[in-house]
Every structure is written in structure tokens, then in C-alpha cells.
Design a protein around this nucleic acid. Structure first.
Lengths: 343, 343
DNA sequence: GTGAAAGCGCTAACAC
DNA sequence: GTGTTAGCGCTTTCAC
């Protein structure tokens, strides 16, 4: 008696998790009604709502957002691209973004582009593959191919931390040129006569540095030495940059750094050499990181409202995702120079 | 002649993006064959592979991982939960995790739990809803309900940065008790006789602190004052903690901090008061952040190989996701005391 | 307010 | 090695 070969019903296991179907059955309604109870509760009678809510609680149902995203073409996922997560600069932006999105039922996916563009293609592939409802770029999308792919994917894009005359789509940022100029004017106003720069070699820091140089020259400074260090910047870069400046341009009386960490490096090196800050050398940072105010001396720095940037970016994307018109697509959050003791 | 009511073919727009179907048609093969060409290229003839690859390139196709994840019950998404992304402590772990996963075709989704457990439930809902192939916990899953839900979701879990006798599932970490003890012994060995502590009020820092106290007492110290500060720790917490210690326990000659940032705060405050480090007070940090070596004086601290933790966690999860057996489910990465100038 | 049917884009399961 | 079929779990479209 050998086993009869039954024509084998094709069965796929599925994940085994509780589905909306199960919930609906338990609540005694159709799946679509259960779906509405969860997504648009006011389209459903109070009675049904309660039955579904109870069923969800009893079963421990958690909706499958892969399925939902596939069906609705809305993943409720937003991708953010940062050069590196270990850079503290964008942290507040990412944090604000995370929170603002979470409040609205969206989730953030973080991608690292690195400061070069080697992995950019793979990163874009990974991002677009998840069909996010929006992409937030901090800094630049380097390659033209990258830009083309983003355009082709038709995903709303918010560029941040910069202001360009030719935005991709939406934009929240500030003018790096204005920052450079403002800091130069600030130092000149403080009576500094021989300013120097230490800057990460990324595009935006370079732009700040060049604007600073130009403004400083306009104010009568003959040469404005600049030391470029590889991004991401570190404390140690600051230390060795000051050492270099002291060697090559001994008379300097002020340094504008492209990050607070560099500034801390400058101050550390100065301290270890017995150079007075701000007495001999004034130091200005960039970023106003949390610790800037608590350093000794307290750091004068450029404050960017990274939180506002993140919140506005979230707003932009959610508005788009939910079909609202976005008229004003460029927001300038500006900046301010926070004057403390170091300059 | 009024328009005849045709029984309306139900049509859904879809996203409008290029689908695998389009690629297959262009390549002249069945969709599943195109799928195989992309996912398991060696199951496909060279000729087909080329045709599909060409079609992908010509159309700019990017595979829809929502659909793929739904169909295969493998999202290739891994969630990591950190208390906060602005804490630099887990940064190396997150970075290593991101990279190790990306190399294997997985993507990281970052969630912030906060240092309290208020949002934990919403976070879990958001995470489980995406059906990740694994979850990496840095620190603790606080609430019992949280643990229950994770268990119910049947998602592989890696706990990190700690060692517990009762792991949830998989574990990569080190012993905080051993750290506390080792640092106490280290300072005692350096001839310090009156040690104090500054610790964030999170669970693990507290455990390190208590182990430190116990070991210090065993070594003959009468009382070992400790100042707890709210997590996440800041430089300023360090400054005010030292101020407090100097007031309440004036004779101290060493401070073990629960983070390098606290240590920097201690050193900053010491410097501003003219207290010599390590002359009068030795300082030991925790974390060995990038800048620790470059401070002045260079910071003696506890080094944790966060990168190894991240890599091992990725390995664990990918192994599980790909159906390999994971025998050794607990890895102790240990720690080391990096002796520099501050102690 | 509620439901039936169809389909989002992909892959598992089975045939050949 | 390649194709057919039937879903994965949800939401859209249309109908009542």
C-alpha cells in the first residue's frame, strides 16, 4: 500500500505571523473593514472600531508594512543620507528628523555616503529599492548619475545644510558664503588683523573658507593662510593644523575652524604650548555642538539650527507624501554667531 | 447616445516604476528567470544573465524590496535600537553594523529608544511592522512587555554592549562588573588612595560604578563617593560633578568617569581651577572615543572594541537570516584599559 | 458604513 | 536551466 500521490496543493507558509485577516475574522468583519479601522478610524462605526481594536490587542497583531507599502505605493519610510553618522554635525538634524517623522507615522532609514563618492551608487540602489516616500540629503549628491537616478525614481528629495540657486527639488539650509563672510567681519570687528583658517576639505567647508578669505582680504588682510584637513575632521587635525600654522604663519591672531571639534583641537594645542586663547589667538568654531559652551574658554562658534532643518525637512516630505501642495520649496534657516570667550 | 456602462476593468496605477516584469519582457525571458538572474546568478545560463543584465541597465530597473520582502518573508532589513544616536558611545558599533550588513546586501534601520522606556512600545511597533530579519539591541530592552513582543515576533535578536547570564537570544558584549573592578585595581596600583566616581544614571554605568566601589573598598578605601548624572552624559555634567566632588569629598585623588565626555568635563573643570591632572587628580574615562588620545593630557580610558561588536552582531543576524546554524550565541569581546597621561 | 474582487511586484513551490 | 502558477498581506476600486 504505497502512499497515493495527491496533486499537492501548492502551499506557501507565509511568515506565520498574525495577519489582518486573522484580526478581521476574530472581529467578525471583512479584512478591508479592519484595515479601515486601523488606518482611517473615523470611516468606521464606533462598534466596529472597538471590535477590531480588541481583536488587535488579543492577537498582538502588528501590521505588515511591507505589504501595506506594496499595496498602497506608500512605504512610510524616509531615507536620510549623511556623509557619516560619526560626524556630530548632522546629529541634531537626524534626531529632529527621526522624531518629527515618527510622530507622523513615518520611519527614518539612515544611509552613509562617505565623504567620497565611491559607494554612492550602491547606496542609491539600496535606498530606492525600499521605495521611500522621500529622501533627505545632507550635503551633496555628488555624481551626475546619482542625481539622474534620483530624478528617475521620482522620489521627493530635500537637500539640506546648504543653499543652492539650482535646487534639485526642495531645500532647507543656509548660505555658507554668508557664514564665511560674517565670521571674517566678526573677527575684524574684534580687532583681529591676521586671521587664519582650518577647514575640512569638503565642499561646503571650502566655500565658507573662501568666502572668509575674500572678506578678510577686502578688510585689508594681505594673506589669509588656510590649512585644509581631510573630512571628517578630528580633534587631532586641529592640533596639528595649529602646529602647522604656527610654523608657516607665525603672526596669526585668530583661527576660524570648520568644526567645533577642530576648534577644540586648536585650543588643546594652544593650551599645551602655553598660548593664550583668546589673548594671543582667537578661536571660532562651527556647529555649536552641545559641549561648545562648556569648554574652557567657552567656544565662540557659528550656530546652525540643525533641529529646525530636520523638522522642516520632515514637514516637506510628509506634505508631499500626503499629496499636499508644497509651494515654498526653499527655506533658509540662517545662522548666528554665538559669541563666548574664545574670540 | 448615452455612454454604455462597461463593467469597468478594475485598474490600479501601480507606482509607474519599471518592474521586473518589464525587464523580463525586454530580455525575452520569464519574470522568475529574471528574478533568478538577479538573486542567484549562477542558477542561470550565461546568455540569459547577459540579456537580463542588459535589460536592467537599459531600463534603469531598481528592484522593489518591499515586494521581494513580502514574497520571500525576508526583508533584508535589520533594526538597531540605540538609546540615542547623539551618544557617541555606540557610534562605532552602528557604523560597523551598517557596513557589515551593507556588504551582505542588508540594510540598517536605526531606532532611538531614549534612556527611559516611554516610547519603547511605539518603537517596537514601528520596527516589527517592517519585518526586519533581525534586531540589534544596544543596551537593554527595558520592559517585560517589550521582551514579550520581541519574542512573539520571532525575530532574531542580538543584545550588545553587555553580558548577562540570561541572554534573550544572541549576545555580543563584555562585563561591566569586570570593567569597574579592573579600573579600581588599576588606580589602586597607581597608588591612588581616595577614588571617586562620576557616572551616568543608566543601568550599565551604575553596574560599573558599583563594581568599582566594591573593589576599591576591598582594597582598603573607606568610602568611594559617586556622583550620578543623568544619561546621556555631557561635558557640562563632568564639570559640575567635579565641582560637587571637590565640595563634598575634598581629598579625592582619582575619578573614574562613565564616559570620555564626562572625563573631558572633569579635566576642563580641573584646568579652569588650576588643579593638575594627573598630578592632583587622576582621570579615567570610558569608551576611548576618537579624541581621547589627543586631549591634553591624553586621556587614560577603557577601550571597548565597538567595531568588533557591530561586526559580530551583523554576522549573527545574517547567519540566522540565511538559515545557518548559530551554535555559539554569546561572544565576549572584552575590554582594555588604555593607559595614557591622565592617570 | 461595509464588503467583494483584484492586484501591488515579487518569489516559493512545483513541473518539465 | 527555465517556465507556470499561486500566493505573500495588504489596500485600491468599485458596488451596495
Amino acid at each position: 500500500m504505497r502512499p497515493k500521490k495527491v496533486p499537492a496543493r501548492r502551499t506557501r507558509r507565509g511568515s506565520g505571523a498574525v495577519t489582518l485577516h486573522d484580526v478581521a475574522k476574530l472581529a467578525g468583519v471583512a479584512p478591508i473593514t479592519a484595515s479601515r479601522a486601523l488606518n482611517t478610524p473615523d470611516q468606521v462605526s464606533a462598534e466596529v472600531l472597538k471590535k477590531v481594536t480588541d481583536a488587535v490587542a488579543r492577537t498582538g497583531y502588528v501590521r505588515n508594512r511591507l505589504a501595506g507599502g506594496l499595496a498602497s505605493a506608500r512605504s512610510r519610510l524616509v531615507a536620510a543620507v549623511v556623509p557619516t553618522i560619526s560626524g556630530p554635525v548632522f546629529l541634531r538634524t537626524v534626531q529632529a528628523l527621526t522624531e518629527a517623522l515618527a510622530e507622523r507615522g513615518y520611519q527614518l532609514m539612515l544611509g552613509q555616503s562617505g565623504y567620497d563618492n565611491s559607494r554612492e551608487d550602491a547606496l542609491l540602489e539600496a535606498i530606492i529599492g525600499r521605495r521611500p516616500d522621500g529622501i533627505v540629503l545632507t550635503g551633496i549628491m555628488h555624481t551626475p548619475e546619482g542625481r539622474k537616478r534620483l530624478l528617475a525614481a521620482a522620489i521627493p528629495v530635500v537637500e539640506t545644510w546648504d543653499l543652492t540657486p539650482t535646487p534639485f527639488d526642495m531645500l532647507v539650509g543656509f548660505s555658507h558664503v554668508d557664514v564665511g563672510r560674517a565670521v571674517a567681519d566678526f573677527l575684524v570687528g574684534k580687532g583681529r588683523r591676521r586671521c587664519a583658517l582650518v577647514a575640512g576639505n569638503d565642499e561646503r567647508a571650502t566655500r565658507r573658507a573662501q568666502a572668509f578669505q575674500k572678506a578678510a582680504r577686502t578688510a585689508g588682510m594681505r594673506d589669509v593662510p588656510v590649512v585644509y584637513v581631510p573630512a571628517p575632521t578630528t580633534l587631532n587635525h586641529g592640533r596639528s593644523a595649529l602646529a602647522e600654522l604656527l610654523r608657516t604663519a607665525p603672526g596669526i591672531d585668530a583661527v576660524f575652524c570648520s568644526s567645533d571639534l577642530l576648534a577644540l583641537g586648536i585650543m588643546t594645542e594652544a593650551q599645551s604650548r602655553g598660548i593664550a586663547v583668546p589673548g594671543q589667538i582667537a578661536v571660532v568654531g562651527f556647529g555649536d555642538l552641545e559641549y561648545a559652551a562648556d569648554l574652557h574658554p567657552a567656544l565662540t562658534t557659528v550656530r546652525i539650527d540643525g533641529t529646525a532643518i530636520g523638522r522642516q525637512a520632515a514637514q516637506f516630505i510628509v506634505d508631499r507624501a500626503e499629496g499636499r501642495r508644497v509651494d515654498k520649496r526653499v527655506v533658509d534657516v540662517g545662522f548666528s554667531i554665538v559669541e563666548r570667550d574664545s574670540a
